[in-house]
Design a protein around this nucleic acid. Structure first.
Lengths: 235, 235
DNA sequence: ATTTATTTTCTAGTATAGTAATATAAATAG
DNA sequence: CTATTTATATTACTATACTAGAAAATAAAT
């Protein structure tokens, strides 16, 4: 099955209370991009989105600017705005950054880790187990990301995790493409998470480092296959 | 000597050809913040800057939003915009990120480094030597940053260097404060740069790693002293 | 029928004016 | 002198208009 045709399937949800209109526009557009409702290469415009969301151009424009900074949109002045294609060089650098930083963080985590954060990790792991049972992939990956966030926060490196998160947005898109090809084994990933938390709890840095090495390299993306199947999605 | 009084000394230069008005506004405000012409805590407004630069509010507003994302401005809705104080936790995380990534990069650099990039490093080193002789601190630090950028680019990690640069903006402000206290020894820093490039050239990873460890830790900021001297600059 | 020139359309960037909401400062009343 | 009210300032947002540049469509020339 080959996905080459451009399509537009912009999904709109309600604005949350306390959410500014600019954040609302940003959330909807980014969610649609990350979920691949808006496939790479799709053309958008400020006017288009402001009409669809029934808001003025200014907050849409400001949301677009931010998304362009995050490499999710390509804005060509006087020409148009396009959903960015997945930049494989960018994905490789994001993966490298994360791998190197996770190694450094696990060293700190295995040395000294707050009790309350460890408790939160265990709660998160429980929820992951539920997702494995239900084969809830989206839920599992959300919790996966939360879990690593808890570890970075507990090591006083919140901003670094925020940077990694921002740089890893294309990772979400690639993962969804991989999911469509049945590329993930949740039980194995879950088992690695469990071992990682064990390593933190027992202050076993050697185990922690080994798991991090396996864990991140496990998420190997069969890029060549994806490129053949999803024509036009990558650069 | 204590610097506590708020002051406003916004320096304006001409817009460059090919530079959008938004980029112009961004460049001027960020340069003034990073050079400490606008001291931490100074109040600004969109209206204020648009009048001073004789441009409309929209590009100023968009520049402000970006600067707020980069932690250089604090925007308080309906209240005002303030030059952000230097967040020491942020500085610590930026330093950690850079240190960890430089260690990882030097491993790659000492394994395989392109000839043309090595050549550029040597040119850069020559220019640094000139700056040491002239005691041109600003020139030296600009070249310092360029040098590290060359290394990251040669290792195919341009985006990571861009992230480090963006996250290290407060480093510029701290360095200027340190300079005012005569805290840098250019000859020593230069010597370390020379050794680093030697390590890359001779593929001596051990030396490279040792220099990186010394180099980054050498840039130790006497924060407690700076906090006493520059009251109100930090959080 | 093909190529070239012109016109039209579309979009982002920018300018301008106005309102809403909120916070702060100034003025006023007790 | 203190509390209350009013005025002012600022950001967020709405709305509209204009400019500049690029692409598409159309007309004219070959």
């Amino acid at each position: 099955m080959i996905y080459g045709a451009m399509q537009m399937n912009f999904i709109i949800s309600d604005k949350l209370t306390q959410e500014s209109i600019r954040e609302y526009a940003y959330r909807l557009v980014s969610t649609n991009i990350l979920n691949l409702n808006l496939v790479p290469g799709t053309a958008l415009s400020e006017q288009d989105i402001s009409v669809q969301l029934n808001i003025s151009r200014t907050p849409v424009r400001e949301a677009f600017i931010r998304l362009a900074q995050e490499d999710l949109l390509d804005i060509l002045p006087q020409r148009g705005t396009y959903v960015a294609k997945i930049d494989l060089q960018q994905v490789a650098e994001a993966r490298f950054l994360r791998e190197v930083m996770e190694h450094a963080i696990i060293k700190i985590a295995c040395r000294d880790f707050p009790e309350d954060a460890l408790f939160n990790l265990k709660i998160c792991l429980k929820k992951q187990e539920n997702c494995v049972i239900k084969e809830d992939f989206d839920g599992f990956f959300d919790l996966d990301w939360s879990m690593h966030g808890i570890i970075f926060n507990a090591c006083n490196k919140s901003r670094i995790w925020q940077i990694i998160t921002q740089m890893s947005m294309n990772y979400s898109r690639v993962r969804i493409l991989n999911l469509k090809n049945g590329q993930y084994e949740l039980p194995k990933l879950f088992h690695q998470h469990k071992q990682l938390i064990d390593a933190i709890e027992t202050k076993d840095y050697g185990l922690g480092e080994k798991i991090i090495a396996i864990h991140i390299n496990k998420v190997i993306l069969d890029i060549e296959d994806l490129k053949k199947i999803y024509i036009g999605y990558f650069i």
